[in-house]
Design a protein around this nucleic acid. Structure first.
Lengths: 333, 333
DNA sequence: TTGAAAGCGATACCAT
DNA sequence: ATGGTATCGCTTTCAA
């Protein structure tokens, strides 16, 4: 592999000049530029990006931490981040945090050790303080789906409360009043926000629901099944189940079917996230759209603008969820 | 950030000695090692991995190229790769190839430019020659789900032909004889292999199927819907549909339902891949297990052994698919 | 075992 | 506009 030395020699110019034509930031006479370009071509020269990184103190790589690398939700997000960043010539280093504090910290350390220019994080186990500290210590951080006071507009958020509200409002408007709710793990912030939205809608409609219709799930299909089983075992009647994510909604629907209940004639089901899968379920799931791909792209753009181009363009970092009406929700008398 | 110089100064030893205790390959007296370790701790020293990479000509990073970052199939694979590699302290740089030749080549160039120590590729658009060439030119490559003559055991393969055979054999054993087949894009090697297995099973059972029951799909849900619509429009009867992947099988099932056909009473459906989603569909999809997570882990291990530890352990690079019986397949008279 | 010094391949400042 | 040169932070001979 040819080096910059060989290029400068062949072109008959200095190292510095070669570097200049590569980076294009300083003016170089057309004559020399041509010679350098020719020499590069002849030697099939490719700059060594590691050497560039060492000298420039910029690695052109961004760390991306998600809870899991599988799962439709993160897939869309990663895809958005990678697409946008690669178009800008930046490398994406991925890691999984597994929604576990030690594991998330470990992953962040790992990404920092590779000297990423910035970190895009979807984390739920580490504390706000930890994230703030990280940022103070010099690692530019953008956080997805979480608002951290003090991180300002480098938080790419969805209005989860509004999502929860819209979901339940839609159910209420269909005439349901006995509404079960399957939440995610309550230690997660977004889970609590969605629940808050749910309660706001109930209140607005003057609808009171007994505690027994609230079940804490695990965000997985199995949790949805378990929740539905418990709901059915209880005597407390309900005509609709609002779920904090689509996976659990799938579980709920499957469990309903296993108990000879038709969705939506016997029971309506509402999801959250609008993962791809929700279009393929039977019946097609009514849900709240979470624009995870969009948000991934926005996170990538934030990094591009603030880290690589330092144009402090104001970016839209707050996203609004929307209702996606499909077949799992039906009007009742 | 402290450098190795400061550590050596504080510890009162040479640069080289500090480097030695870091790498642990050369013997260092216990006395000095202790002093160095203490100095490191005191300065909160973290080696600069970029400088290490430049000096050692090893970046400790592996490029991972998949068709799409979303989608259950690749998610599992990436998860396997990342888990294994991070445990070994290696960084994973991801890129998407979008099953397009130009895009795949572009992504590979991109990963090489970052001086990845090795590349793990799931590609279907680039030619065998291109991959061989890549390897010859010095980029260690491991290929997933594709056998390239000359790349030897750095191909992590599934026996797709056997998978196709097992799928159709199961359908035949349930008594079906009028079997439709929805393939993937025929320019993909694995698609042709699966089809070959399908035909072998048919032949073995002395079953002849008219050409009109073969439809070329696109591996997506929409393609499954379109294929089923075409099948239903034709007069040619069929009692089962074998699909080359689960997504299309979902489409087929949804389309069947939209046409008031019950799965599996009216028509049986067979998938391929056993993506997570197949457990959540209604009815639960009978399919062929593709151990993509396992294969990802194996690819990562290949890299670990051959690139980082150069133990030429023989690894199991050929995986066998297995039948997963669920509810979408039913015995007929 | 230990240290001195020569790279690794670029960038960037300072002269000219 | 161009060249010389120090620098980035570490690894790795080569002597001692």
């Amino acid at each position: 592999m040819a080096t910059i030395y060989e290029v400068s020699e062949l072109a008959g110019v200095s190292l510095a000049t070669v570097s200049r034509v590569m980076n294009g930031n300083t003016r170089v006479s057309e004559a020399k530029r041509t010679k350098v370009l020719a020499a590069m071509k002849e030697l099939n020269y490719r700059p060594n990006s590691i050497a560039q990184s060492l000298a420039s103190n910029c690695t052109n790589s961004v760390g991306l931490l998600v809870s899991e690398l599988y799962g439709p939700f993160f897939g869309e997000m990663m895809s958005g981040v990678e697409g946008e960043l690669r178009a800008a010539g930046k490398h994406v280093i991925v890691a999984a945090g597994h929604s576990d504090e030690a594991s998330e910290k470990d992953a962040i350390e790992f990404l920092i050790s590779r000297k990423c220019d910035a970190l895009i994080l979807h984390v739920d186990a580490v504390s706000d303080e930890y994230l703030l500290d990280l940022n103070k210590k010099g690692t530019p951080v953008v956080v997805i789906n979480r608002y951290v006071e003090g991180l300002g507009e480098s938080c790419i958020c969805l209005n989860n409360e509004l999502g929860g509200y819209l979901a339940t409002k839609a159910v209420l408007e269909m005439g349901h009043r006995q509404i079960a709710y399957v939440s995610g793990p309550m230690w997660k912030m977004d889970v609590r926000e969605r629940l808050a939205g749910h309660k706001r809608a109930l209140k607005e409609f003057g609808c009171e629901v007994p505690d027994s219709l609230y079940i804490e799930g695990d965000f997985h299909e199995e949790g949805g099944v378990a929740a539905m089983q418990q709901l059915l075992k209880q005597k407390q009647p309900f005509t609709a189940v609002v779920c904090a994510n689509d996976e659990m909604a799938c579980g709920v629907m499957n469990c309903a079917r296993d108990n000879d209940l038709d969705v939506p004639s016997d029971v309506s089901v509402m999801g959250f996230d609008n993962v791809i899968m929700s279009r393929y379920t039977f019946p097609h799931l009514t849900t709240i759209d979470f624009p995870s791909g969009e948000m991934g792209r926005m996170a990538a753009n934030w990094v591009r603008h603030h880290i690589y181009e330092d144009k402090k363009k104001p970016l839209n970092t707050l996203f609004e969820p929307t209702l996606v009406l499909r077949d799992s929700l039906r009007k009742i008398a």
